[in-house]
Amino acid sequence: MNTIIYAVLFYLLAVMVVGSAAYVAVSKNIVRCAFALVYTFIGVAGLFVLLSADFIAATQVLVYVGGTLVLILFAVMLSSRISDVKISNRSVQFIPGFVVTCCFAVILIYIAVSGQWPIKDVIEFSPTTAAIGNSLLSRWLLPFEVISILILVGLMGAVVIARHKINSKGDAK
């Protein structure tokens, strides 16, 4: 891939990801937050493409943008009266939170910059889907199965939690 195009794409996507993520973190309107999140997710998917992770990028778009985000939007709609929406996502104690987060970000970036990461010599771009499929059904078969069961249990749990109204004594009726 052409290095310059690669760099331009990277910086564009990076700005998009970080900018929209920052918007998610500071915006006062929860619906706008949710839409900014779409841009973050799509940007992250773009970054994944740059990292030669085609399959993961596709999954990211499908699962996050198609699934998770719709779920979040539903929750927003169900839990707030629409008239409240404008003020429904206020921040509290923003300044101390911001200071702590900035310090933390500085530390993380310092580690990222100063770390002696091993770098491989030839960086290649090759399709990964087949390799991931093989890997999931051989080397990572057990975690794969465990996660399948976990999803089943989690979804049932979600249904149970969301359906039952719990009265003040704590038992479901």
Partner: peptide, 18 residues
């Protein structure tokens, strides 16, 4: 790292559970 920081900021300052 920046994305992570944004996430942390979001978690510790938001009032809305969503």
């Amino acid at each position: 790292a920046l994305l992570f920081a944004c996430g942390i900021l979001c978690v510790i300052t938001r009032r809305n559970a969503v």
